[in-house]
């Protein structure tokens, strides 16, 4: 499988400057591409476009030659930097977790999610605990590509390495493709198969 962005340009309004200009980018299954570079170069914008959450001003995103599906489960999933902002504060965790697929007990154990957490509200969990839910819910068997936008900056290093080890195991097992945005070069070198600088895109 291949996820590609062809000649993408993006601006918020007609008057605002271009954030991305004629960017092309490809990731195939089994590949883990790291995107590094300074703030303000459109890394996160590109991530949102790849995952279908933002429409490019021009250019197109294609999954195996076809546009991303607008209905049903999207095989391209995204994990965000702030887990506390990406879950519904009025849903208990069990509802958030099972929104689009139902992970079984052994999967939850592997993710380090404790049963007792399912009955809690998001505000009763720490950032690291919430991020585990955000990752678990995105890892349905139908997920073919995973976009990770700074998913571990707010976590302590032990939680960070726990989460990445789980993700890498799963990605290798299923031959998933990943796009990994980070400021941490040591981390990128550890988890990616290839690193590109955002300026060169």
């Amino acid at each position: 499988m291949l996820l590609e962005a062809n000649n993408i340009s993006f601006r918020y309004t007609e008057k605002s400057p271009l954030i991305l200009e004629d960017v092309s980018f490809k990731v195939s299954e089994g590949e883990r591409i790291g995107i590094v570079g300074p703030s303000g170069y459109g890394k996160s914008t590109l991530a949102k476009i790849l995952a279908g959450y933002e429409k490019p001003t021009s250019g197109e995103v294609k999954l195996d030659g076809a546009p991303l599906p607008m209905k049903g489960y999207c095989p391209v999933q995204m994990i965000y930097q702030h887990p506390e902002l990406s879950v519904n504060p009025r849903w208990k965790m069990v509802k958030t977790l099972n929104e689009c697929w139902e992970p079984d007990d052994s999967f939850l154990e592997k993710m380090g999610i404790e049963k007792a957490w399912l009955k809690r509200w998001p505000s009763e969990l720490s950032g690291g605990e919430l991020q585990r839910f955000c990752i678990a819910r995105s890892l349905s068997p139908e997920t073919k590509f995973l976009i990770c936008d700074e998913i571990s900056t707010m976590l302590d290093v032990i939680t960070q390495s726990q989460i990445w080890n789980i993700l890498l195991d799963t990605a290798k097992e299923r031959n998933m493709g990943m796009v990994i945005i980070t400021h941490n070069l040591a981390l990128a070198e550890r988890v990616c198969t290839k690193i590109v600088k955002v300026k060169e895109l």
Partner: peptide, 19 residues
Amino acid sequence: KAFIDALPQNDFKPIPGTQ
């Protein structure tokens, strides 16, 4: 010690469990 071990530039090996 576990903290230092878990850094990506070192072993990147986490201890199990949560706080």
